[in-house]
């Protein structure tokens, strides 16, 4: 099991915070801020875990997830979805589309680490 995480998120300060927490925990963190080009970046980086925000410029996280699950090589990639909207229908949609885990912002650092570790080994 590798330790490569790709964080797709467009808020610079959240990138900074999540990147810091994961790096401290021993993960190799790559980041990307655009929904449109996210699929290319995922193929390039080949992460072990994907942390994916829902509200992204260009394309939403849900659409990226849908493509991901339809992709022969990437359909098994563990995905942690983050959203700031925190509505039930978002959670349902994420589950339907096959997100491994779903978290609502804001979260505690410990919960985030815990979630990433769990989906990486599942």
């Amino acid at each position: 099991m590798g330790n490569q995480v790709l964080l797709v998120e467009d808020e610079p300060n959240i990138i900074e915070a999540v990147g810091f927490i994961l790096a401290r925990d021993g993960w190799a963190v790559a980041t990307h801020a655009n929904g449109e080009t996210a699929m290319d970046e995922i193929r390039r980086v080949c992460p072990d875990v994907l942390v994916l925000d829902v509200m992204l410029p260009g394309r939403s996280g849900f659409e990226v997830l849908k493509d991901l699950r339809a992709d022969a090589d990437l359909h098994a990639l563990p995905v942690l979805m983050l959203t700031a909207r925190g509505q039930d229908k978002d959670r349902d949609l994420a589950e339907k589309l096959g997100a491994t885990r779903f978290m609502t912002k804001p979260f505690s650092n410990a919960d985030l680490l815990d979630a990433v570790r769990k989906i990486a080994t599942s």
Partner: peptide, 18 residues
């Protein structure tokens, strides 16, 4: 509203914990 409030809070919570 939820999104606009939660986004800055995420950074605040994460960094204050750090």
């Amino acid at each position: 509203i939820s999104h606009e409030l939660r986004t800055p809070m995420t950074s605040i919570r994460a960094f204050s914990e750090i």
